[in-house]
C-alpha cells in the first residue's frame, strides 16, 4: 500500500485546512450528517468512496452509520473488505484519527482495528432514542474536549448494537481505560458492561454505537437543557478531532 498517514500539520495551519474524510459504502445512510458535523466543527469534509483506495490526503477519517451491504452476512462484514478499508487500516495503524459510528464501529470491529463485535440487540428489535452516555476516556483523538465523567445525550438507532467480547478482552479494555463511552440510565441493547464505545491502545481509533453526528446543531438535535432539539453534545467529538489535528 503506497498510502501514508497525513503529513504533520504546519504551525501556520488553520482550522479550515484540516481535512476529515467521510467514507460512503453501498448502504451508508449518515455520510451527509457526518460531513455536516465535520463542517460545523470547523474542518473540511472530504467525501471518500468505498471502491477508491485513495484517501485523497485527508488528516482523519469517519466511517459513518447505515446498513452497508444491507447488513448481509454480519453488520460491517463485507464493507471491511472494501478497497478504501485497506488504506484506512494502514492509516489507522500509522496514527491517523479514525472514528466509526454505528455501522462504522461494526466495520472497525470486523476489520480488527477494535476488539469485540456487535450482535443483535438483546430485545431483538430496532431501537431509536435519545441516549445518555458517560465519557470515560478523554485522552482519545475524538474526546479531548470532554472532561472525564461528562454525561452527554446523543441519538442512538440500531438493530445490531449489542457489544460483545470475551471476559478477558473486556477486563483488558476496562483495565487500560479503553472504554470511551458507557450507557447511563439504561443499557439499550444488552451491551457487555454497558459499553457504548471503545478505543484502540493508541487512542486514535474510536468506535461507538450512538450517533454524535446527529447532535451538532441547535434545532436538529436531541432535547437539551435549553429546550427541545437544542442538544449539541455530539459536536465536541468532531471539534476534539479538529484540535487533535491542529495541536498534535
Amino acid at each position: 500500500m503506497s498510502h501514508v498517514a497525513a503529513p504533520p500539520p504546519s504551525p501556520t495551519r488553520s482550522a479550515t485546512d484540516a481535512r476529515i474524510g467521510v467514507v460512503t459504502f453501498p448502504g451508508t445512510l449518515d455520510d451527509r450528517d457526518a460531513a455536516r458535523a465535520v463542517r460545523l466543527a470547523g474542518a473540511k469534509p472530504v467525501s471518500l468512496w468505498h471502491a477508491d483506495a485513495d484517501l485523497h490526503g485527508v488528516d482523519a477519517v469517519v466511517l459513518p452509520g447505515g446498513f452497508s451491504y444491507g447488513d448481509y452476512l454480519r453488520a460491517g462484514a463485507i464493507s471491511r473488505f472494501a478497497a478504501v478499508m485497506e488504506s484506512v487500516v494502514d492509516a489507522a495503524r500509522g496514527g491517523m484519527p479514525v472514528l466509526g459510528i454505528c455501522n462504522g464501529f461494526q466495520i472497525l470491529a470486523e476489520a480488527h482495528l477494535l476488539p469485540g463485535a456487535m450482535i443483535k440487540n438483546d430485545h431483538r428489535t430496532f431501537i431509536c432514542r435519545e441516549q445518555r452516555l458517560r465519557v470515560e476516556n478523554v485522552d482519545t483523538a475524538w474526546t479531548h474536549e470532554f472532561r472525564p465523567g461528562d454525561e452527554i445525550t446523543v441519538p442512538l438507532k440500531n438493530q445490531d448494537g449489542q457489544f460483545v467480547a470475551d471476559e478477558r478482552t473486556l477486563d483488558e479494555l476496562e483495565g487500560e481505560g479503553r472504554v470511551v463511552f458507557r450507557y447511563v440510565g439504561w443499557n439499550p441493547n444488552g451491551s457487555r458492561r454497558d459499553i457504548a464505545g471503545i478505543t484502540n491502545a493508541a487512542g486514535n481509533v474510536v468506535g461507538l454505537m450512538p450517533h454524535p453526528e446527529h447532535a451538532v446543531e441547535p434545532g436538529f438535535g436531541p432535547d437539551g437543557p435549553q429546550g427541545p432539539r437544542t442538544g449539541t453534545d455530539g459536536l465536541r467529538v468532531f471539534t476534539s478531532a479538529l484540535n487533535t489535528l491542529l495541536h498534535p
Partner: peptide, 14 residues
C-alpha cells in the same frame, strides 16, 4: 453457529 457463550437473540426469539 454462534459461540455457546454468546447470547443468540434470534434463536431466543424462535
Amino acid at each position: 453457529m454462534p459461540k455457546p457463550e454468546i447470547l443468540d437473540p434470534q434463536g431466543k426469539a424462535v
